[in-house]
Amino acid sequence: MSVKVQRSFAEQQQGQLSGCGTLYLVATPIGNLEDMTYRAVRILREADIIAAEDTRQTRKLLSHFEITPGKLLSYHDHNRVASGPELIRFIIEGKNLALVSDAGLPAISDPGSDLVKLAIEAGIPVVPVPGANAALSALIVSGLPTDSFKFIGFLPREQRERDEILHMQQEEQSTLLFYESPHRLIKTLESMLAVLGNRRIVLARELTKRFEEMARGTVEACLEWLGEHPPMGEYCIVVEGADPGELEEKRNAWWQSLSIHDHVLHYEEKGLSRKEAMKKTAQDRGVSKRDIYQSLI
C-alpha cells in the first residue's frame, strides 16, 4: 500500500491552479463565543460553502460575527448518505467548503467523519481549523491523569449495549472520556458503578457557559449528589482509569480458575442465598448481576 502525503498549504495553491477546492474542518465555540478563533472567522468568511449540522444554529453564529455565507447547506446524520457525495462534487468543481458542527470540533461524535473519508478518497485536501473541544476541556480541569486518555463519546441507550462497551474498558488504565445528556446521566453512572466500580470521576457540565460546573468525587458520591441536584445541561464525564494493582490482584484472585457456576456455588455452600451468591460473584468479577444470571441460564 502506497503512502499518500498531504501538504495542506502547498496543495491549496495547486488546487487553485487545478480547479479543486479544499475541505476545512472548522471548530466553533462550545458555549462561550469568545472562544471563536480569528482563523475560524476568516475561513468561514472566505468559504464558498458552509456545511452545517444545524443551519439554524450556525446562522446565529454567523450573524454574531457578521459573516455572510456564500451558501449554507445542511449536512447531518439523517442526510449524510445523499448530501455527502454532492458536497464532494462541489469541492471537486473548485468550491472551498467549511464543515462545522453544532459546537466544538466537527467529525467527533457527528457525521463529519464520513465526509472526511469521502474527501480523502477523492484526493481532496482536508485541513483542520482547531478550536474548542468539550472532552479535552473537561479532561484538563479534572485533576485525573492526562498523560494517557481514551475518548468513548456517547454510550448506547440500551443498558445491555452500554454495559458491553463498559466491560471492554474494565482493564483500560487510561483516563476515560464520555459525553452524556442530562436525562440519561444517572443511568449511565449506575452502569459505570456496576461495571467499572466506584472510581473517581468528574462531571463537567455547561463548559465555558454561564453555569459551568465541575462535580468531582467517586461514582457513588456523585450519584448521591445528583439526587439533590438534578442533572441539567450537557455533560462530559471523566473517569479514572483502572488501577494496575487492582488489576494484578484480580488476575491472581482465588476464583479465577472457577467457572461462574462454581463461583456462585462456592458462596451458596457458605450459606448465602442464590441471589446473594450471584451478587457476590458479580462483585468479585467486576460485572453486573444480570451478566451472572445470563451465564447461568
Rank of each mutant, 00 (worst) to 15 (best):
S8V: 12
F9W: 13
A10L: 15
Q14Y: 14
G21Y: 15
V26M: 03
G31N: 04
D35N: 10
D35A: 04
I49N: 10
I50W: 07
A51E: 08
A52E: 06
F65Y: 08
K71W: 12
L73W: 08
Y75N: 03
D77M: 08
H78P: 03
A82H: 14
I88Q: 07
R89M: 05
I91Q: 05
L97N: 06
L99C: 12
A103P: 06
A103D: 09
L105Q: 10
I108K: 09
G112N: 06
D114W: 14
K117M: 11
E121N: 09
E121D: 06
G123R: 08
I124T: 10
V127L: 11
N133A: 11
A135P: 07
S137I: 08
S137Q: 07
D147P: 12
I152H: 10
I152E: 15
D163N: 08
I165L: 12
M168F: 15
E172R: 07
Q173D: 04
Q173H: 05
T175D: 02
R184C: 05
R184D: 04
L189R: 08
A194M: 01
G197R: 15
V202N: 04
A204H: 05
A204V: 08
E206T: 09
E206K: 12
L207N: 13
K209N: 00
V219A: 02
E220H: 01
E224S: 10
E234A: 11
V238N: 15
Q256M: 11
S257R: 05
L258F: 02
S259H: 14
S259L: 14
S259I: 08
I260D: 00
D262F: 07
L265P: 02
E268Y: 04
E269A: 10
G271H: 01
K275E: 07
M278D: 01
